[in-house]
Write a protein that binds this DNA or RNA. Structure first.
Length: 295
DNA sequence: AACACTCTCAACCGCAACTGA
DNA sequence: CTCAGTTGCGGTTGAGAGTGT
């Protein structure tokens, strides 16, 4: 699958993994642990590149991975996190235990993005794609799928651009982020707090008015706070709309970004104090969570 | 049954960030 | 500080499964 192999990978296996390869990789990692991906294939006896091994392990073989059956709670959290964070799949995945960034990305692209766009276009709008089990296909026949020629790729890009103008979902520049579960115990809280101190890149561009429409409820599993639920009916639209406005004013200078980050965090803390939505016993955990978002 | 078409998701790529010498 | 090697991320692709005609 995917693209043509690059020259350095000639001679290596590509495409779907066989059960034998899976077994080799799993056995090796169980015995020696993760890491050193570059040299891992050789040591594990696999004819794969290290990148491929890492991907297979991270997205499929890891024992703690949940597959399929995205719950409504997860569904909702993905949408809300995405409205706040954009396409930072690894960060979103970090708040969904057992889910991988790849799975969330795929789920978003195939299910949620359509739903969110439809919501933003109003209740009368019909999604362009229909569920598979839709039987009324006669009147909704699509053109035959063509190979991605340059022209139709450009055409699609134009359509996408146009659509993007309508929907105005702010997609921040991707950055590398660390997705740390926030533990309730003190040791982990210290880690989260100290980690936040060094971060100054790529703030979450968000304004007070965005925060005003939200209330927060921590999602706790096994003593770890994995995320928060945001209450309110119209939140997604309002958040997207105002974030989009902010997007128009983005200044790329580091100072502006840093100030925006600081402002957001201050406002976030203030909101939590003012709103009293969350009990005091959870305040510390939520603080850590907010800080960890900027790690 | 055969074909046409859509949808899903595993796997790929390029590139940015990180790390250590 | 620089540079090379490694790791991790988000975007993209296309095979295969599913569904309709």
């Amino acid at each position: 699958m995917g693209r043509a192999p690059c020259c350095e990978k000639v001679g290596l296996h590509r495409g779907p993994w066989t059960p034998k390869e899976d077994a080799l990789l799993t056995k090796y990692i169980q015995a020696h642990g993760e890491g050193l991906w570059k040299s891992l294939p050789k040591r594990a006896g696999l004819l794969r590149c290290g990148k491929s091994c890492r991907l297979r392990w991270m997205n499929y073989l890891r024992p703690d991975i949940k597959r399929g059956n995205i719950t409504p709670e997860e569904d909702d959290l993905i949408i809300r996190m995405h409205s706040l964070l954009g396409n930072r799949w690894s960060l979103i995945a970090g708040r969904l235990p057992g889910r991988t960034d790849n799975e969330i990305k795929n789920y978003w692209n195939t299910h949620l993005s359509k739903r969110v766009k439809a919501q933003q276009l109003g209740p009368d709008h019909q999604p362009t794609s229909k569920p598979r089990n839709n039987t009324n296909k006669k009147n909704n026949k699509k053109k035959k799928k063509k190979p991605a020629t340059k022209n139709n790729v450009e055409g699609e890009a134009e359509k996408a651009e146009e659509q993007e103008k309508k929907t105005h979902i702010y997609l921040p520049k991707p950055i590398r982020v660390r997705a740390l579960p926030i533990s309730i115990n003190e040791e982990d809280s210290k880690i989260s707090s100290s980690a936040s101190g060094s971060s100054s890149q790529d703030p979450l561009i968000l304004q007070k008015e965005d925060m005003d429409v939200m209330s927060y409820e921590p999602w706790v599993e096994n003593d770890d706070v994995f995320g928060f639920f945001v209450e309110g009916d119209q939140n997604i639209d309002r958040v997207n709309a105002s974030v989009s406005e902010e997007n128009n004013n983005i200044n790329n200078s580091d100072d502006m970004e840093y100030e925006s980050l600081e402002r957001l965090y201050e406002e976030y803390l203030q909101l939590l104090k003012d709103d009293n939505v969350v009990g005091d016993e959870n305040q510390g955990e939520l603080d850590s969570f907010a800080q960890s978002l900027f790690v």
